[in-house]
Amino acid sequence: MGRYAIRRILQMIPVFFGTTFLIYALMFALPGDPVRNLTIGKQTNPVYLEYIREQFNLNQPFIIQYLDYLKGILTLDFGKTFNGTPVLEIFQQRWPVSVTLALTAFGLEVLFGIGFGIWAALRKGKVFDHLSLTGTLIVVAVPVFVLGYVAQWVFGVKLGWVAPAGIQDGWPKSYIVPAAVLASLSLAYALRLTRQSLLEAFNSDYVRTAKAKGLPPGTVLRKYSLRNSLIPVVTFLGADLATLMGGAVITEGIFNIPGIGQQLYQSIRLHESVVVVGIVTVLVIIYLFANLIVDLLYGVLDPRIRYE
């Protein structure tokens, strides 16, 4: 398993170069002049524009710009934004916010997705089961931004339980509603997956054996039904954690949370290649590691999986 993990980590190196190259190329290919964008509607000295282009290497051909950027990264210099802020500093401000949001969302997803999923399976065909199925269907069907604005209006404006936007109240007060919105879709999937796979386990031969062994119902549920049915759920959740980290652009926008998603959106608009590439690369790495952890976890949960 150790060798497997090392090989997987080594495989990440080409992926790292591939993504940085691809994203850089895409940013380069965006129409419009980033420097001119900065100064729209203002009288600016062309010499100053030229100076900025010079400073940010924008006059160089693409491949030189890219290699220059790579050289910077290897010395842990992620570059600067057009207004002079080091990208590393942006990371230090923004990542903790997004990670907090994502982890809160993930916690809700695990707790309620699995918890309600189990409950629904145990009460199959009863009121709670039907409620959960209808509820999740609505969540899946309604776009996140609709859900987000509704939640903001209900909890932030009408009820006034939390501030409608911003993170000035800290964790958990400022994070709980956006996290719930962010988690909602995955939570719905996790709930349905848990329920479905648990119901399958209930009808399995090994659960019948467990009953024939005279084991108490709690043991049958924990060691037989759940232990087997949670394998696909854990796989789903693991992969989803990475998605939550990067998928918060809309949620962070609605609730005005200064996280990485919002930064990404702004930087794409400003053509700040260095910021975009940095963020996307980190997201890719997070995604790769999350997948690796899921794969390793899979082997721990299911002894039938062997690593070659």
Binding site: A212, K213, G214, P216, K223, R227, D302, P303
Partner: peptide, 25 residues
């Protein structure tokens, strides 16, 4: 009834591959 199962009355099933829990040794 549960107390009797496995202790006084036990049952062997047909297909031991699916009747044994795959994730417990």
């Amino acid at each position: 009834h549960r107390k009797l199962r496995g202790t006084d009355i036990a049952m062997i099933f047909q297909d031991a591959l699916s009747a044994l829990n795959p994730v417990i040794c």
